[in-house]
């Protein structure tokens, strides 16, 4: 069961890490409030599922609400330098938590809210249920992976990379920076929202204290370690970090240590990030060159005698 549980969490965090990859890895936008959009998705799922909506509709709602918030919240900062966006998104993470805590009618405030499982009423054993969750999460992850992989190799994806590399050049080509940036944040936040929905239905109870800024930091560790602008990097980074994150909890439960492994883990993650930024800012996997139609043509020319 531990293994299945870990697999579900790995899948959820891989979704988050890939969503940050759209924003930061490809478009160069620093979203420091990832947890807010994760939380928005989780609560959107919880509220709609409690109303009796089917699973897929609740997940769509989670994506829509989180995506809309992603675009709206960042709008005031998109015309400005990257640090303004960082401060706004980070602050929004705090504000959304306060909002959910204060508005008890919405979702139970600090007492949290129970969420119906996606597989409730099917009479599954706990073991089968865990497998069903693994399949659900990883199927969605596979879909998102494929979608993003294709998206980033379209002209649209090239515009996003262009914004990261040279926003003036993109403007000269007549593309609206603000519109593209908002779209990137919308896509990223929508994916984070789906992850939140999956999280809520899996653990079946959510409260505001599950959505601390810690989550945002973990996602950044995943992406920086794995390698920004590389989907495999985002995926592998999430697997490695979540492996240690789970591991430290198990160690905490079963082995008496003179220190708290949870604290030590975050100190080490922090040091790891600083070390990586100093000596290996591109992470484990480097960004691959873009595949375009032109490239295929060139390779034909080069191989023909």
């Amino acid at each position: 069961m531990y293994l299945l549980d870990t697999l579900v969490f790995m899948g959820i965090f891989a979704l988050l890490s890939m969503s940050l990859n759209v924003e930061y890895g490809y478009t160069g936008l620093g979203n420091f409030g990832k947890v807010a959009f994760f939380m928005a998705g989780a609560y959107a799922y919880a509220v709609t599922a409690a109303l009796g909506w089917p699973v897929y509709l609740s997940l769509v709602m989670a994506a829509l609400i989180a995506g809309a918030l992603g675009a709206v919240v960042s709008l005031p900062a998109l015309r400005l330098r990257e640090d303004y966006l960082a401060i706004v998104t980070l602050s929004f993470g705090e504000i959304l938590r306060i909002f959910v805590k204060a508005e008890q009618w919405l979702a139970g405030g600090v007492w949290g809210k129970t969420v119906p499982s996606a597989f409730a009423g099917l009479g599954l054993s706990p073991k089968t249920m865990a497998w069903a969750n693994v399949l659900l999460v990883w199927a969605i992850l596979a879909g998102v992976f494929l979608f993003l992989h294709l998206l980033m190799n379209t002209p649209y994806g090239r515009v996003l990379r262009g914004i990261r590399e040279d926003d003036v050049a993109v403007q000269v080509l007549g593309k609206s920076l603000v519109s593209y940036k908002a779209q990137a944040l919308m896509v990223g936040s929508a994916i984070a929202g789906v992850a939140g929905g999956l999280f809520a239905q899996y653990i079946r109870f959510i409260d505001p204290y599950m959505f601390l800024p810690l989550v945002t930091f973990l996602v950044w560790v995943m992406l920086i370690l794995g390698g920004p602008a590389n989907h495999w990097g985002a995926l592998i980074g999430a697997l490695i970090v979540e492996f240690f994150n789970r591991g430290s909890r198990i160690v905490k439960d079963y082995i008496a240590l003179p220190f708290d492994p949870h604290n030590v883990q975050f100190v080490l993650f922090g040091l790891l990030i600083i070390f990586l930024l100093l000596y290996r800012p591109y992470g484990l996997f480097r960004e691959k060159p873009m595949r375009t139609g032109a490239e295929v043509e060139v390779s034909k020319w080069q191989s023909s005698p």
């Binding site: 160069g28 620093g30 960082a86 930091f217 950044w220 790891l272 600083i274 930024l277 800012p281």
Partner: peptide
């Protein structure tokens, strides 16, 4: 880059 400096400061904060 500016974003990396901000990430480093957040990481230092966690340390």
């Amino acid at each position: 880059s500016l974003i990396h400096l901000m990430v480093a400061s957040i990481a230092l904060g966690y340390v």
